[in-house]
Simulated assay, not measured.
Amino acid sequence: MTAGIEFRAVTKRYGDDPAGPAAVDGISFEIPRGTLTTILGPSGCGKTTTLRLIAGLETPSAGRILIGGRDVTGLGPAQRNVSMVFQSYALFPHMDVVENVSYGLRMSGMAPAEARRRAVEALHGVGLVDLEARLPSELSGGQQQRVALARALVLQPEVLLFDEPLSNLDTRLRREMREEIRSLQQRLRLTVAYVTHDRSEALAVSDRIVVMDRGAIAQRGTPQELYESPASEFVAAFMGEASLFPAQADAEGQVLLGPLRIAPRRPAPAGPVTVAVRPEAWHVVPPGQGLDARLAKLSYLGSSYEYTFETELGPVFVVSPDVGHALGIGSAVGLQLASHGVAIVPAPRARARAG
């Protein structure tokens, strides 16, 4: 599969100091043509700078950027055939819906009648019908998001960029819009770079995910790879709720976690390791089996219970779908680990030296 977007050792520094801190530090990755890749990470990790570099809104301090095999490193936004959907939507408040969507076409010299026809067609494509004459202030947040999406799509860009597009919507609308974006991307085979800090959003929409930390790439891969096989404590914790426990790998590659013995998918080198456990990986069993635990806290969430147990490993957070058999505070139980939701990652260097 050919690359739609390619970064080759790209660095971005702000200011005049060539040795100063880099917002993006020598990163390399590809987004295959016709796929959606999410650039994910906490605030300040460099993900938005990366998106702006793709758009041509920032110029790299070093490295090369290619779109569709063409070197665009020195080209401006208008020369890249790229459209962006902004977090704020950036709709013109004095223009009605169809004027907003057709604006880019009209500015490129297209006849007004043809620009309007294509704008209406794009609006229908995102599920907006009979709203052409409304102003943005007369639309809901979800409708405004669809107008912004139609405005980007009507230009038929080679690459479509999303900058935190769902952060202003409520939970239900976020779910609906992420499904709409994913459906459109797959149907039109768009090449999409999508920036968010929301891991659930990233897992739901992505073909691949690039996790960034402090200007560098911490790990990249499919959503399943990053969730089930994180390469570090940072990725394990960032890709979803996870408890991190220091443990020891023996000479046979088995991992000893208190009284529990874990057989990793790949044998671990002997020495200190970290076990990352998702809350759904714990099974509550009768006392005397597995890890001894006593219930300290619980919360009822309708479809599940959240439990916090006191154990010899410290507090253990568990999500149980068994809402028909609630435990009482102080209940003594055992905890065992499932085969899924458990990952072995390298221990931090300091801990490894101490071990």
Rank of each mutant, 00 (worst) to 15 (best):
L226F: 15
Y300G: 03
R106C: 10
G46N: 00
P348S: 01
Q79V: 13
P223N: 11
G328S: 15
P269S: 11
E6H: 10
I209D: 00
V159E: 00
K12W: 05
E58C: 09
T196Q: 00
V85N: 04
G142K: 01
D16Y: 08
G56L: 03
R182E: 05
R266K: 10
A90N: 09
V316A: 14
T37L: 01
R261G: 11
Q79T: 09
L155D: 00
A152G: 04
V72A: 07
H197V: 08
E114D: 14
T35G: 02
P230L: 11
E280S: 12
G56W: 03
A62S: 12
R116E: 14
L131W: 02
T73E: 12
P136E: 06
S43A: 11
P259T: 12
Q156Y: 05
V235P: 11
G142S: 12
I31N: 01
D207I: 02
E179R: 11
E158G: 15
S43L: 03
A270Q: 14
G341T: 12
A237T: 12
I65H: 08
A242H: 08
S200V: 15
Q143K: 10
R106D: 06
T59V: 14
E312M: 12
S137P: 05
S43W: 10
S206D: 00
A352T: 03
G69L: 10
V24G: 04
S229V: 14
G253P: 08
A332C: 14
V72R: 04
G63M: 15
H124N: 09
F234V: 03
S206P: 04
Q254R: 15
V319K: 11
M84G: 04
F317P: 00
F92W: 15
N100H: 08
A354H: 03
A237G: 09
G26H: 14
S232N: 13
L169T: 07
D322S: 10
E179F: 06
R278L: 12
T196D: 04
V195L: 02
E179T: 14
L260G: 11
D213P: 01
L53T: 10
M239S: 13
L153I: 05
F86H: 04
R208W: 06
V192C: 03
G314P: 13
Q143R: 13
S43R: 04
N168K: 06
P259R: 04
A22T: 03
P267S: 07
R351V: 01
L257A: 11
H124S: 10
Q186D: 06
P346H: 05
T49G: 09
G74L: 14
V98M: 05
T196F: 06
L36I: 07
W282L: 01
D250R: 11
V10K: 10
G109R: 11
L295T: 08
